[in-house]
Computed example of a mutant assay.
Amino acid sequence: MARSSSGESVLTRAVRILSAFSAEEPVLTVSQLSRRAGLPIATTVRLVEELTRHGLLARDERRRVRIGNRMWELAQRASPVRALREAALQFMDDLQHVVGHSTQLGILDGDEVLFVERLVAPGAVVTFTEVGGRLPLHASSAGLVLLAHAPAEVRDRVLSGPLPAFTPHTITDPRALRAALADVRRRGIALCAGHIHPDATGIAVPVRGSGQVIAALGLVVPNDRHAWSLVQPLQLSGMALSRALDVRTP
């Protein structure tokens, strides 16, 4: 595979271009892509043109660049979380109608929680999560559930690394985080009041498949005394989804 003078492969440089897009800025100029990817403008132009020919990128009427439909098609066709999302949507929709708050589904990806589905309730409390969005494992309820059941090497790596704070309530002390993870394993629930935003409480439970925790099902609710009353319907939904996944497993 061809490499640049810096030793990077063409594939690595293409990934840097694709990674420059975000939910907040899904459309970028070539100059913006060049700066964000840290690539020379000529290299960026050449790679954008090639990626566009393959449908992985596309141009709008102003020649700005966005992710192409082909990228979405390939991701949907072979996504490893497709079955999980399809199974979870019914339970998430039912749960949202019962509790009246936003629901979300996250999986472990590296040292972060990756949110693969979200349903937003009308008038919902503020939430930082979005489909395809990520949060550090230590900071969110879904992250705590996944970290509590993650392999020991993942827990050790997160506990030894930086634990940035989103609010004064975010867990940033390794000993406090270790104790919180033990509590999540014991109680089967993570409730994070004001850890990401002072006005929001995140609640999450494990989703199991073949006996292993494969995801976290969660709610984002107002940060008030009523949050605990929503734990039981969330737990019931998590158990029902786990049973449905086991039935689907060949």
Rank of each mutant, 00 (worst) to 15 (best):
R3Q: 13
R3D: 08
S4D: 15
E8C: 03
S9R: 03
V10S: 12
A14L: 13
A14V: 10
R16N: 09
A20P: 01
F21Q: 09
A23P: 01
V27D: 05
V27E: 13
L28S: 04
T29C: 00
V30I: 14
L33N: 08
S34E: 04
R35S: 12
R35Q: 08
A37F: 02
I41E: 11
I41N: 02
I41K: 07
A42E: 14
V45N: 08
V45G: 03
L47R: 08
L47F: 05
V48Y: 05
E50N: 07
E50S: 14
T52S: 15
R53L: 11
G55H: 06
A58M: 14
R59K: 14
E61C: 03
R63W: 02
R66G: 11
N69T: 13
R70H: 13
R70F: 12
L74V: 08
A75R: 15
R77H: 04
A78N: 07
A78L: 11
P80L: 00
V81I: 03
R85P: 06
A87R: 02
A88V: 05
L89N: 07
Q90M: 05
Q96T: 07
Q96L: 15
H97Q: 15
V99R: 08
H101N: 12
G110W: 06
G110V: 03
E112W: 03
E112H: 13
L114S: 13
E117K: 02
R118G: 07
V120F: 10
P122H: 01
G123P: 07
A124E: 07
V125M: 06
V126I: 13
T127N: 12
F128T: 14
V131K: 09
G132R: 05
G133H: 04
R134Q: 14
L135G: 06
L135I: 09
L135N: 14
H138A: 10
S140W: 02
A142F: 01
G143C: 10
L144Q: 14
A148S: 14
H149S: 06
H149G: 01
A150T: 08
P151G: 12
V154K: 11
R155A: 09
L159D: 10
G161H: 05
G161C: 06
L163P: 07
T167L: 06
T167C: 10
H169V: 01
H169M: 06
T170D: 05
I171E: 08
T172E: 11
R175P: 00
A176F: 13
R178M: 05
A179E: 15
A179C: 06
A180E: 15
D183W: 10
R185L: 04
R187D: 13
R187E: 13
L191D: 00
A193D: 00
A193K: 02
A193G: 01
H197I: 04
D199A: 10
A200W: 02
T201S: 10
T201V: 13
T201K: 03
I203R: 03
P206S: 05
R208E: 09
G209Q: 12
S210A: 15
Q212Y: 08
I214C: 14
A215N: 09
A215V: 00
L217N: 01
L219T: 03
L219Q: 09
V220R: 07
V220M: 10
P222E: 05
N223F: 01
H226T: 15
Q232E: 15
L234Y: 05
L234H: 09
M239I: 07
L241E: 00
D246C: 04
R248V: 02
R248Y: 08
R248E: 15
T249W: 02
T249S: 14
